[in-house]
């Protein structure tokens, strides 16, 4: 119910902004939500656009379930992309299957590496991970730019981007006639594993207990810090695989635009999904539609294509507000007493 109200508010607020940008809001929403679904191309592009979100959304949802507020999926994704690129640049002469496996492992390792320091600081010294994970995001981007302007600069074009990686590491397309790649399958499998681990294993129960009531978990003898540390690394690994997927499945090289904020959008996805893994899949697809639709809206109505991001941001704000209202109730108390 509250979510429905949040969505209505999203429409109202976004409409005002679209109006402001000089377009008819109804037409804009028709393009944003409708146009990608009208063609096979639109649908497959929306799925492609959803692929990294499945992984970053899953990564964030996993961490949040344990009460570890990982806002650093963006940096972890970039670190994963860097490590995967390294593999891709040195993969001549290895079999394709091995190349793919190495890419996934490299992505996961990169993400874990980037998640390691905040996880350690949190579990050893109690330093707030929201700040550390968030602040490491631009650092990861700086490392990417540094590499692209230095050792990895394309020797032929001299552009700040790597040369095209070895074909031995490309993720295969999984649907003929589209750009949908192996990353989607990996994402869905990762979500399924997360869902199973959280719901059906001892480790998952620990995570949930730690996330819901760390004090009670500690009294029950659970190692709260260790659980947080492990979860943080797992979350980083999943986000890192998203980076590997973008490199190996879409761009086939590393550029400084490899992620237009997939990691941040992962926070949006996880929150909108209320930390449910099946819902992460659904929400990723919806946001994928908006991403693709924003381009057609932009072309047809000559408004900025960032309108898609605006709608997503407004959606996040309203849904988070709705979640607050689910937990708390505003009481108009005409008297002065409070209970």
């Amino acid at each position: 119910m509250l979510i429905a109200i949040a969505i209505i508010f999203t429409f109202i607020i976004s409409s005002a902004m679209i109006r402001w940008a000089g377009a008819n809001p109804f037409a804009a929403f028709k393009y944003l939500l409708g146009s990608p679904l009208q063609s096979k191309f639109g649908i497959t592009e929306a799925i492609l656009s959803a692929t990294p979100l499945v992984l970053t959304g899953g990564a964030v949802a996993l961490a949040f379930r344990a009460g570890y507020w990982n806002i650093g999926a963006e940096g972890q994704l970039l670190a994963g992309a860097i490590c995967a690129t390294f593999v891709g640049l040195h993969a001549d002469g290895i079999p394709h299957w091995l190349g793919i496996i190495l890419m996934v492992i490299a992505g996961a390792l990169g993400g874990m590496l980037w998640a390691f320091v905040p996880a350690l600081l949190r579990s050893r010294l109690g330093i707030d991970e929201v700040v550390t994970t968030l602040l490491l995001n631009p650092v990861a981007l700086l490392v990417v730019t540094g590499l692209l302007n230095g050792p990895w600069r394309n020797p032929e074009t001299k552009f700040p981007e790597t040369q095209v990686l070895s074909e031995n590491v490309f993720f295969p397309r999984v649907y003929p006639g589209s750009r949908i790649h192996l990353g989607l399958i990996i994402g869905i499998v990762a979500l399924a594993i997360c869902w199973w681990v959280v719901g059906r294993t001892a480790g998952g129960l620990k995570m949930r207990a730690v996330g819901l009531a760390p004090g009670a978990a500690r009294i029950a003898g659970l190692k709260v810090e260790r659980t947080l540390f492990t979860t943080a690394l797992a979350s980083g690994a999943i986000a890192g695989i998203a980076g590997a997927g973008e490199v190996a499945g879409v761009a086939h090289q590393l550029t400084d635009g490899i992620s237009p904020g997939f990691g941040y959008t992962g926070v949006v996805v996880a929150t909108l999904a209320a930390l449910s893994f099946p819902a992460v899949l659904l929400i990723s697809f919806v946001l994928g539609i908006i991403n693709v639709g924003s381009f057609s809206a932009s072309r047809a109505l000559s408004i900025p294509s960032t309108i898609g991001e605006v709608v997503q941001a407004v959606l996040l704000t309203t849904v988070v507000s709705a979640l607050v209202f689910m937990k708390y109730r505003i009481v108009l108390d005409k008297g002065k007493h409070r209970d």
Partner: peptide
């Protein structure tokens, strides 16, 4: 842990006894 179920709370301090290998 008030949001967890009775049975989950019951086994929370003895997970190793109720899982194999790690699966509840």
């Amino acid at each position: 842990v008030s949001a967890l179920t009775v049975e989950e709370n019951l086994i929370l301090d003895r997970l190793h006894f109720f899982s194999k290998p790690g699966i509840l």
